[in-house]
Write a protein that binds this DNA or RNA. Structure first.
Lengths: 207, 207
DNA sequence: TTTTATTGATTGATCACTCAATTAAAAATA
DNA sequence: TATTTTTAATTGAGTGATCAATCAATAAAA
């Protein structure tokens, strides 16, 4: 059975299996055996390629982050105006595969793990900073820097909060509603800032 | 050593110890031994009074919820106008002991646990509903019901999101900033609603 | 004498992780 | 080409540690 060049295939399968398993159980208490079963290999092989469960989890988070970044880059490329880019950043976070219950559950578990693992915390901080930074770079072209910073903080918090509530599966806020709420926030904040200076500067969000 | 009437004392000590221990470790992987040590009793006694770790955790969440409700009731009693009550609801969630790093870490862990334990999920849903309901009852007196519902959803999400980010300890948003961001949100939303109907209805948030 | 509080010692289960052994492909050698 | 050697992939069968949960025993208050 040993076919050469299996390493990248197995690594990917195991990372995907980890995301699925953690998403299903909704917690990092999944066992290596369970993950390995999802990936169709023995637990020993998972250890062979990743050394430890913690490393496997970290690679899984890295993979999620890569995916999210790729999506963001693609979405930003399609947008032209700052206002469009702002909406694109918001939309990306609520894209179907990011907002799927298992993905949300996995994120939740990772946040909890961040309290114990410094490396996991670092990765989540990277995510948080990137979200802020993406929002901020567009906002700074739409309003003064001070206001832009506040609006970015608020929007980022709202996005994360909508994720959290999605994880509870009780207050079913749809993808569209989540986007609408976040858009409504930035829109009203921009209008408020513009209103206090040049009262006609408020623009409509792109349909 | 056996003094009669210890049960309520021990129960409280163990619940408090659980919150502290979970907050410290930032996860429910704390052992019963650790919790018991925090409470100054043997692990066996914790099992004696609570039967299982899960029950102890559930009682701990209930206790957090009771505390939060009591704070909310007290804050609402002091407020007179709907606008004041709205601000009071917001402020309560960021009160010092609710927003302390260990408390935030504990909430995080509970959210993660909600994916596995139906009972924990139910309790967190109670919290989420109560927050929405508290916001909504004030908002409905300040704007039309439809808008009020959206604003309540948005504010609740923002509050939860600010908690989440507090848990990462990297984007240190102070209590005051968190309150200001949430107030800024409801204020701008109310202004937007009012502006589209009676342009002078927007009010300042209470200082 | 009964009841309540309390614990040390133990048990049984669960896991992450290790390791020696196996298989077959690839590379080197004859 | 045929044969041997090396290397990569893979796993079954452990090992040791950790923990929740149990229970019988003890101590003192009622």
């Amino acid at each position: 059975m040993p076919k050469v060049g299996m390493e990248p295939v197995r690594r990917k399968a195991l990372v995907d299996a980890t995301l699925r398993a953690v998403g299903d159980r909704g917690s990092l208490t999944v066992t290596m055996s369970e993950i390995a079963r999802h990936a169709g290999v023995s637990p020993a092989l998972a250890h062979h390629y990743f050394g430890s469960k913690e490393q496997l989890v970290i690679e899984t988070i890295r993979s999620l982050l890569r995916q999210l970044r790729a999506d963001a880059v693609a979405a930003l490329k399609a947008a032209t105006t700052p206002r469009d880019r702002l909406s694109a950043v918001i939309r990306v976070n609520f894209q179907a595969h990011q907002y799927a219950p298992e993905t949300v559950a996995a994120w939740l578990a990772f946040y909890s793990e961040a309290q114990r693992s410094e490396e996991v915390r670092r990765l989540l901080v990277v995510y948080a900073r990137r979200l802020n930074s993406n929002l901020l770079s567009s906002l700074k072209q739409l309003c003064p820097a001070g206001a832009a910073s506040d609006i970015a903080d608020g929007a980022a918090a709202m996005i994360d909060g909508l994720y959290l509530r999605q994880g509870l599966k009780s207050a079913p806020v749809s993808i569209e509603s989540s986007i609408a709420l976040t858009e409504g926030y930035v829109q009203a904040q921009l209008a408020a800032v513009a209103g206090s200076r040049t009262p006609d500067a408020a623009k409509q969000p792109p349909a």
